[in-house]
């Protein structure tokens, strides 16, 4: 008798795969990445190549060492590497970038169980580790098209005056490689929303709450959301599936929490940037938020 495939229903599935979703994220990040090449030239290309290679190699070696099936095909290591690169200043020594990629994959992702099991976003937490380990290198920013070291990013100038908003929006200012162009980050975000990879809930609640809270504290709201890592963080890192709540209400709580903590650190803290810590703290709260906002089953809604 002929052999037939037998499996529990359903027998059809959506075309989306993990690899496809990751590829979409990479595509969405491409405009900002290419823009950084344009702004900072060869050193930016080297830095991106270094972090991606380091992340992918770490993933490969980890799978080999622990005898796990290779997870390179899902492209998640590439996304982590790319995100990390965009979070680094263009003049960072390459070995630090390589170290960052390894920290992201080995310590933050794989040691907690690999894809989907990490409690914090690997790229962002690696950035925090680098920031604490190498504070000077991580805060030395250059102005695009030049080798001039800028004494302060627009973020630091925010308290002293109002920077040129158009320049901020287009990205012609000093900062991390991928943080500078809000316009291109938004383009990628819209692409991800159209492709249904992310919903606008977290980015919008993050950005809006940061703007409103900044205004309450007397800081320029538009400049607040256009500077630093708010765009990059809210669209690409706060929306990381594994480390953010899946429910609508949970995502609003998460986004608002990120926005408020970011602004608090920026205004009252002595750190140069608050986005990373804002997201990290909310990452840690994610299981609790998810538990609190989990939906009730259909026929039990509205009942105790």
């Amino acid at each position: 008798m002929q052999k037939l495939n037998v499996l529990s229903s359903p027998h059809i599935s959506h075309n989306d795969t993990t690899g496809g979703i990751m590829l979409d994220v990479i595509l969405a990040l491409l405009p900002a990445t290419i823009c950084s090449f344009f702004f900072y030239g060869f050193r930016a290309i080297v830095l991106v190549a270094a972090t991606v290679a380091s992340a992918v190699a770490s993933e490969y070696l980890w799978c080999q060492a622990t005898k796990k099936a290779s997870s390179l095909k899902d492209l998640s290591a590439v996304v982590t590497g790319l995100l990390l690169a965009l979070n680094l200043p263009p003049d960072l020594p390459v070995w630090m970038a390589v170290l960052g990629g390894a920290i992201a994959i080995v310590i933050i992702k794989q040691m907690f169980g690999g894809l989907g099991h990490n409690f914090a976003n690997p790229a962002m937490t690696a950035r925090i580790v680098l920031m604490i380990s190498f504070p000077t290198a991580m805060t030395t920013f250059t102005v695009p098209f030049t080798d001039t070291v800028s004494s302060a990013t627009p973020l630091a100038e925010l308290s002293s005056g109002t920077p040129d908003l158009i320049q901020l929006f287009l990205g012609y200012h000093a900062g991390c490689m991928g943080e500078t162009s809000a316009a291109l980050l938004l383009v990628g975000g819209v692409y991800l929303i159209i492709r249904r990879v992310i919903t606008p809930t977290i980015p919008l609640s993050f950005i809006l709450s940061a703007g409103i809270f900044a205004a309450i504290l007397g800081v320029h709201p538009v400049a607040t959301i256009l500077t630093g890592g708010i765009m990059l963080g809210s669209i690409y890192m706060a929306t990381d599936y594994a480390t953010s709540p899946p429910t609508f209400l949970g995502q609003i709580i998460f986004g608002v929490g990120c926005g408020i903590i970011t602004v608090i650190i920026r205004v009252f803290g002595n750190l140069p940037e608050g986005v990373s810590f804002g997201i990290l703290i909310m990452n840690i709260l994610t299981p609790q938020i998810t538990k609190l906002t989990s939906p009730k089953p259909f026929s039990l809604e509205g009942k105790k």
């Binding site: 599935s13 993990t18 997870s71 690999g114 599936y241 594994a242 709540p245 899946p246 429910t247 089953p297």
Partner: peptide, 20 residues
């Protein structure tokens, strides 16, 4: 059928469930 890989916690199963 699609090969099974690690859960990425995207929450799509929760959103798809008509019974929530």
């Amino acid at each position: 059928t699609k090969p099974t890989t690690d859960c990425i916690r995207c929450g799509r199963c929760m959103k798809a469930c008509p019974i929530r």
